[in-house]
């Protein structure tokens, strides 16, 4: 288990977000269209489906120095490709124990379902995630 340095409220975490094109990317668009505000720490990468995200990409982001990684897709049952997000859910349930093994706190990885209409939820997810990562402080 990684030992956390003291929380640093001035630390600006860097977050990589993999967002599915059909729901979550559109949800993030909706947050913009509704002029909601959230911290600017997240960098969004658009993928066709959350099931497209290879766990190795998440590991790569951490290896490069990301403080947090968000994967967001359609709600269960709503996948544009009918079942992609089910694979996502199972895949990342399996990834979590490995993150611990790699010395990355499992709080630094987040899997969320955000629909195309949930701009507010996206805003909340990013805001909370950013503040959680600030609490955790920089990675060691």
């Amino acid at each position: 288990m990684a030992v956390n340095p003291a929380p640093n409220p001035n630390h600006e975490p860097r977050i990589v977000g993999f967002l599915c094109n059909w729901c979550s990317y559109a949800g993030a668009d909706m947050a913009g269209t509704s002029r909601m505000t959230y911290p600017s720490n997240i960098r969004i990468i658009r993928v066709p489906c959350s099931g497209r995200v290879d766990p190795l990409l998440v590991i790569k982001a951490f290896e490069m120095g990301a403080d947090g990684v968000l994967v967001a897709g359609c709600h269960p049952g709503d996948c544009h490709y009918s079942e992609g997000n089910y694979h996502t859910r199972r895949r990342f349930a399996l990834l979590r124990p490995f993150l611990d093994y790699l010395g990355i706190e499992d709080k630094r990885f987040k899997l969320e379902w955000v629909s195309a209409t949930e701009g507010k939820k996206f805003t909340q997810v990013v805001t909370e995630f950013t503040s959680e990562l600030k609490q955790l402080g920089p990675r060691n």
Partner: peptide, 25 residues
């Protein structure tokens, strides 16, 4: 690069952070 919905419209309170994000994306 989505500079409007994902940057300027959601980080209006933080032009510096928005500009950094815009450059990165």
């Amino acid at each position: 690069a989505n500079l409007r919905e994902h940057v300027s419209w959601v980080h209006g309170d933080n032009k510096q952070g928005a500009t950094e994000k815009a450059i990165e994306i």
